[in-house]
Write a protein that binds this DNA or RNA. Structure first.
Lengths: 184, 184
DNA sequence: CAATTAGGTCAACGGTTGTTGACCAAGGGT
DNA sequence: ACCCTTGGTCAACAACCGTTGACCTAATTG
């Protein structure tokens, strides 16, 4: 008979991802998340323990790198570039954005990002069996995150205007050299 | 006879730069800035109008690009790379950091950054008289900001570990291609 | 049928925030 | 001597924050 008030937990998580992505950690209030989810602020604490707990749940993420080792060596750079924008332009981008935003001001988020770098980016590079994997992974991360930062956070018009082909043409050779070229 | 209480304005601005750089915009409170400057919180509003006004004053910035046109063409990429880390490792970095941090969560800061891109980065690239200046400037910005983000905000260990020579060796050829190579 | 529990509501708490306005001290110009 | 500007202090405001605990309701379980 009632307006079956259920599923608030999932709605809270969805609202949290959206708001954290749009406003970052500090400006996103527990009350705003609750209101967007048509739920009570107290439920956030009930289900996630604290605002930090909510955030931690909202930014669990998987970069889903393709297995570059199975590709022809010379295609890996542009393949990686295309994967990056496909990932960020797709639905996963909504959960990647809040983390990147939060990294700028929230040390625990930055630590999470360092963990992702060590666990996924570095692991991918090491999987290719290259020399200097740390250095190469660092360069790859710097170019990839720079593109993402300029495109999705800063919103630099010429970066936003680039389509997948343009990104592959621009970043492909760079990533190719970071993976397989001379870097010292 | 008194402890001559003067010069609070300059001390407030200096403290603001430091705190904004360390904690970002939202977590830096007016009271904390005042306390660090051994001044009264009310003076912030008196002198700068509001917290936003204080921030705006704290992030006025000049990228101080060298005149690449006077250099041999093939040296420009690595020269630019060296300039970037010299700038950010130097004292100017303390005023650049808060802006970059704030860009992630503060739209007005992002807009300021877009203005700097259009006014300084794009202008520098256009000064070289190249084709596709917007695209080239966009690529340069993505690589430079990515390095800065990974090194000073994320603190990725392999990126932090790089010295000026390593950065020049890694990013130099990339920036060289973004400036003078084929990018389509 | 009784009792427990999960899911959700409500009002309030203590603390912190940005901002305001009234007040005070010194010192130079007329 | 008077005034008035400059530079600074102080206490307080209203609003908003994250968090808490008491309470209600409906469904499930024994």
């Amino acid at each position: 008979m009632n307006t079956r008030p259920t599923g608030a937990r999932e709605r809270l998580l969805a609202s949290a991802k959206t708001l954290f992505a749009e406003q970052g950690y500090e400006r996103t209030t527990v009350r705003a998340v609750a209101q967007a989810a048509a739920a009570d602020p107290a439920l956030v604490i009930r289900y996630f323990g604290s605002k930090d707990g909510l955030f931690a749940r909202a930014v669990e993420v998987d970069l889903r790198f393709p297995d570059l080792a199975t590709l022809p060596r010379e295609e890996r750079g542009s393949r990686l570039a295309r994967h990056v924008i496909a990932l960020w332009d797709g639905p996963d981008g909504a959960t990647l954005l809040p983390m990147l935003r939060a990294c700028a001001t929230h040390e625990t988020a930055a630590e999470t990002a360092r963990g992702i770098f060590a666990g996924q980016v570095l692991a991918m590079v090491k999987g290719l069996g290259l020399s200097d994997p740390e250095r190469r992974a660092a360069l790859v991360a710097s170019q990839v995150l720079g593109l993402v930062f300029c495109r999705y956070i800063l919103g630099l018009p010429p970066v936003v205007a680039m389509d997948a082909d343009a990104v592959a043409a621009g970043l492909g050779p760079t990533l190719q050299r970071y993976l397989h070229g001379a870097i010292t």
